[in-house]
Design a protein around this nucleic acid. Structure first.
Length: 230
DNA sequence: AGCCTTTGACCAGCG
DNA sequence: TCGCTGGTCAAAGGC
């Protein structure tokens, strides 16, 4: 139970790759917006509505709020698995651009295997914005940070190792408090974390199932590791 | 028929 | 204590 205090925060900016609807249509209001939505749906049949950065698990949306400091609404998702109470906060712009993802908790079950390798592309999209800043945060005192340069070089492999190291010591970084800049694609992805040290222990305990890199669980063995390691 | 999204209301924490 | 903010609930509707 205690192992659920894990929070992963992944922020990515300017996901042009995943956003096919370029900017040509400066969506003003209903008109163009509708077109965009329809376009999206039509282009992504197997996915849910807005294709929320799929990570291999099934999520059910249970709320949405406009948080202060962010110009875009934040959506709240919960893992649909019976005994899994992992939650996820997703923040995305109207363009469908994914600005921030926050995972909270750890799955006590393997990935449901969405539908073949399709997840691959999704993973790439969601977790590897490619060249764009992204960082992962774990609630509990550890911070996984992937900067523009950092993510490219290391990312995947050391990823967890880093997190564990950082777990021991609470790292605090100043986060960019400018939503606009963030949306713009500021590489300055800093974040702060500060929490109860106890959680660090929990983190270590379930580190194996965290995102499942080690375990791999599924036969595919895909996981972010491969993807991120390029 | 079942699951999911949407959406406003409710609740808790904080200054 | 009040107001603000973030997170969750639950009814309604859609697919």
């Amino acid at each position: 139970d205690g192992a659920k205090n894990l929070m992963v925060k992944a922020k990515s900016i300017n996901l042009q790759d995943q956003a096919p609807q370029h900017e040509t249509s400066h969506e003003e209001d209903t008109g163009s917006q509708q077109n965009l939505e329809e376009d999206q749906k039509g282009s992504f049949p197997p996915l849910r509505m807005g294709m929320v950065s799929e990570d291999g698990y099934n999520w059910r949306k249970y709320g949405q709020k406009q948080v202060k400091g962010s110009e875009f609404p934040r959506s709240y998702y919960k893992c649909t698995h019976p005994n899994c109470e992992v939650k996820k906060k997703v923040e995305r712009s109207h363009d469908g651009q994914l600005t921030e993802i926050i995972y909270k908790g750890s799955h006590d079950h393997p990935k449901p295997q969405p539908s073949r390798r399709s997840a691959f592309s999704l993973n790439e999209i969601s977790e590897m914005p490619d060249g764009l800043g992204s960082y992962v945060k774990v609630e509990g005192g550890s911070v996984w940070r992937n900067l523009q340069q950092g993510s490219k070089d290391k990312c995947g492999t050391d990823w967890r190792a880093d997190s564990l190291e950082m777990t021991s010591s609470t790292s605090v970084v100043t986060e960019l408090s400018d939503p606009l800049s963030t949306a713009q694609g500021k590489h300055l992805n800093v974040l702060e974390s500060a929490d109860t040290p106890e959680l660090s222990s929990t983190l270590a305990s379930h580190d194996d199932e965290e995102d499942g890199p080690t375990q791999g669980s599924i036969s595919l063995g895909d996981d972010v590791e491969d993807v991120e390691s390029e």
